[in-house]
Computed example of a mutant assay.
Amino acid sequence: MDISVVVPLFNEEESLPELTSWIKKVMQENNFSYEVILVDDGSNDDSWKVIESLKLGHPEIKGIKFRRNYGKSAALNVGFTVAQGDVVITMDADLQDSPDEIPVLYKRIKEEKLDLISGWKKKRYDPISKTIPTKLFNSATRSMSGIHNLHDFNCGLKAYRKTVVKNIEVYGEMHRYIPVIAKWAGFSKIEEQVVEHRARKYGTTKFGLNRFINGFLDLLSIFFVGKFGKRPMHFFGSLGVLSFFFGTIMAIWIIGEKLYHIAHGTSYRDVTDQPMFYIALVAVIVGTQLFLTGFVAELVSRSSSNRNNYQIEKEI
């Protein structure tokens, strides 16, 4: 199979018939063998009924329905698990992503042997309350990830080699940073493609300001896990050793100062009367705790088996 199109959706009953029809037209014009995986992320409208009706006349459509709303990352992760195409395309269900971009994305993945292509909506139709924070996040992500050739990490329209989606894990709100996750997994051939951004035709945006907070926290998580996920002792242990060393040096200084005064018969303050003693004590305790945290983290690192355990209600 040439292409798998993974479409996460939430309350998009009006756009689905037009979207799937558009995808089919593009695929037939280019003689692609394909499948469309529609992942209903717990919609409370008639999105699933629409998917069921579309499935009846279109065998290339697959539908997955969550019992409740888990989020876009969960929908993408499950879609990636099911996808069978050599190239996997992701796009939003709101018709703001154009299926006409699919042939170019497919061709570039194949001919340039790329791992991932991220869309860049150079001209956007979003309100300024969304575009300005997005630019700030993209700038921060470029700086922290080292992927300097991408302008829009959060664009829903992306193309992947099949190997990439089978070897990455997407959870939380980390769909925003899939290029970063792919890079940390060893897939470094990441490029950008300018794509069309269309004005929303149906429904309302699911965007909320709280996503920026979650997105920032997930960026920190990705940075930490990507850099220290397999070696947490290097992070916690280093901090612990520094803190322990700092506290020990201060303690030695205090004791040495007392011994000096005793040897010369001069007056001195008791060790426990000096603020530096308590600073040294706290530094030693914190250093020990950080070291032990790193040791425990080393034992349990990346061992969770339930991170992507989602309850799927129906599958067709």
Rank of each mutant, 00 (worst) to 15 (best):
F137E: 06
N138E: 12
N138M: 04
N138S: 11
N138A: 08
N138F: 02
A140M: 14
A140F: 10
A140S: 13
T141R: 01
T141K: 01
R142K: 15
R142S: 12
R142F: 08
R142H: 07
S143P: 00
S143F: 14
M144Q: 08
M144H: 06
S145M: 05
S145K: 08
S145P: 00
I147T: 04
I147S: 04
H148W: 10
H148V: 10
L150I: 10
H151D: 15
D152H: 12
F153E: 00
F153L: 00
N154R: 11
N154Q: 12
N154D: 12
C155V: 03
C155Y: 02
C155G: 06
L157S: 06
K158F: 03
A159Q: 08
A159C: 10
Y160L: 09
Y160F: 15
R161N: 13
R161M: 11
R161F: 01
K162D: 07
T163G: 09
V164F: 07
V164M: 09
V164W: 04
V165K: 05
V165L: 06
K166R: 14
K166Y: 04
N167F: 04
E169L: 10
E169H: 07
E169G: 08
Y171E: 04
Y171K: 06
Y171S: 13
Y171P: 00
G172L: 00
E173M: 07
E173I: 05
H175N: 14
H175C: 02
H175Y: 13
R176F: 06
Y177L: 11
Y177T: 12
Y177Q: 07
Y177P: 02
P179M: 02
K183Q: 11
A185Y: 08
A185E: 14
A185I: 07
F187D: 03
F187T: 04
S188E: 15
S188P: 00
S188A: 09
S188H: 09
K189L: 07
I190S: 03
I190A: 05
E191Y: 02
E191D: 15
Q193R: 15
Q193S: 13
V194Q: 12
V195W: 04
V195A: 03
E196T: 11
E196Y: 06
E196A: 10
H197I: 02
R198H: 13
A199V: 11
A199N: 10
K201V: 13
Y202K: 09
G203P: 03
G203D: 02
G203K: 03
G203W: 02
T204M: 13
T204C: 08
T204R: 13
T204W: 12
T204G: 11
T204D: 14
T205R: 05
T205W: 05
T205V: 07
K206Y: 11
K206M: 09
K206S: 15
F207E: 12
G208P: 01
L209D: 07
L209G: 09
N210L: 08
N210Y: 14
N210R: 11
N210M: 09
R211G: 10
R211C: 08
R211K: 13
R211N: 11
